[in-house]
């Protein structure tokens, strides 16, 4: 919807409050004008990636100068295994970007993907991924977000069932007035599919985290085993987390569950760590890093996992002094 608005320049095409899926991420309200499309890009450089990240395809996406629309496709041939690191890099200023990814996985293909998205605090940024899977595919994704004026990473996976597996994880660490939205839709189309999701977020300052996760199990998709968990920590009274984990079930032989918790940092754990000698700030950082770190720990590729942990540790560091 954002791409359409950017292409046409028509502000009324921006998604906003009146769209159920965008009630908490109001782009219409955030943008008084739609910036013109401009193919120019800002310089890369917000991340330094190890030159030899073994066996990983690293793709870097530079921020536009004004409005930017990009469409990227990836095909993993039958039986192949790919590891992808998508770095959606920050630029400066009030740019507006729409990135669309289309992934197609052949029979028995597998893809592990890490998305790290950084944006300027004034930017509006949306990245949407659609994944088509065949039988016996394995798709695993981890999205790490740090927010923007409005930032949304949306992922749709059509799961054919069979022996296929899907993991859709995410983490967000937000400070200042940043806003990050992680939205997922997993559609179980066939029998015996499995999906797992773990999304964890921490908000400080006046930041706002949004999580929407829908599991759909269509008629005939019996034997589906789908689980989703979202856990949020709010470190400040001006911060906010909005979440909607949804189950939409049209088959009866299923085991679906979601859990959603939102709360403050566990005071007991904080005291425990402090009683062992960790100063408060360090104890907080340790607990926050551990909390979101569990998302990174689920990444199979060791190189990707390290990148994720580094990213999260750096984010947790930025929280110091802003917690309360």
């Amino acid at each position: 919807m954002l791409a359409e608005a950017l292409r046409s320049g028509d502000r009324t095409k921006l998604p906003g409050r009146r769209h159920e899926g965008w009630r908490w991420t109001d782009l219409f309200g955030a943008l008084t004008t739609v910036p013109p499309l401009n193919p120019e890009r800002q310089a890369l450089g917000s991340w330094s990636v190890p030159i030899a990240l073994d066996g990983v395809v690293v793709r870097r996406f530079a921020a536009p100068i004004q409005g930017g629309v990009e469409h990227v496709t990836l095909e993993v041939p039958a039986g192949d295994h790919r590891v992808v690191l998508d770095l959606i890099e920050a630029g400066q200023g009030r740019y507006v970007r729409d990135l669309a990814f289309d992934f197609t996985l052949g029979v028995g293909a597998s893809l592990e993907r890490l998305v790290m998205i950084a944006d300027d605090a004034d930017a509006v940024s949306v990245a949407t991924t659609h994944v088509q899977m065949q039988a016996r595919c394995d798709f695993a994704q981890t999205v790490l977000a740090s927010g923007a004026r409005r930032q949304r990473v949306e992922t749709h996976v059509d799961h054919p069932g069979g022996a296929g597996r899907v993991r859709l994880d995410g983490a967000y660490l937000l400070a200042g007035a940043r806003h990050a939205d992680q939205t997922t839709v997993v559609r179980h189309l066939g029998r015996d599919g499995e999906s797992r999701q773990l999304v964890r977020g921490v908000v400080a300052g006046a930041a706002r985290g949004v999580f929407q996760g829908r599991i759909e199990v269509l008629q005939g998709a019996d034997g589906t085993d789908a689980r989703l968990a979202h856990n949020g920590l709010i470190l400040s009274d001006r911060a906010e987390i909005d979440s909607k984990p949804e189950l939409e079930i049209y088959a009866d032989d299923v085991a679906c569950a979601h859990g959603n918790t939102i709360g403050a940092l566990d005071e007991d754990a904080l005291f425990y760590a402090m009683s062992r000698g960790l100063p408060e700030a360090e104890a907080r950082r340790l607990l926050i890093t551990a909390f979101v770190g569990e998302v990174a720990e689920r990444i199979r590729h060791p190189g990707l996992r390290d990148q994720a942990l580094i990213f999260l540790a750096a984010q947790a560091e930025a929280f110091d002094g802003e917690g309360r």
């Binding site: 009274d237 949804e246 859990g259 959603n260 918790t261 939102i262 709360g263």
Partner: peptide
């Protein structure tokens, strides 16, 4: 086989001292 069950819980938390827990299962 022909029935449907949906769960649509909205949670909006706007302070740092709230504690909210939600669990849902479909079986």
């Amino acid at each position: 086989k022909d029935c449907a069950a949906h769960t649509v819980p909205y949670v909006e938390a706007r302070n740092g001292s709230a504690k909210l827990e939600h669990e849902a299962t479909t079986t």
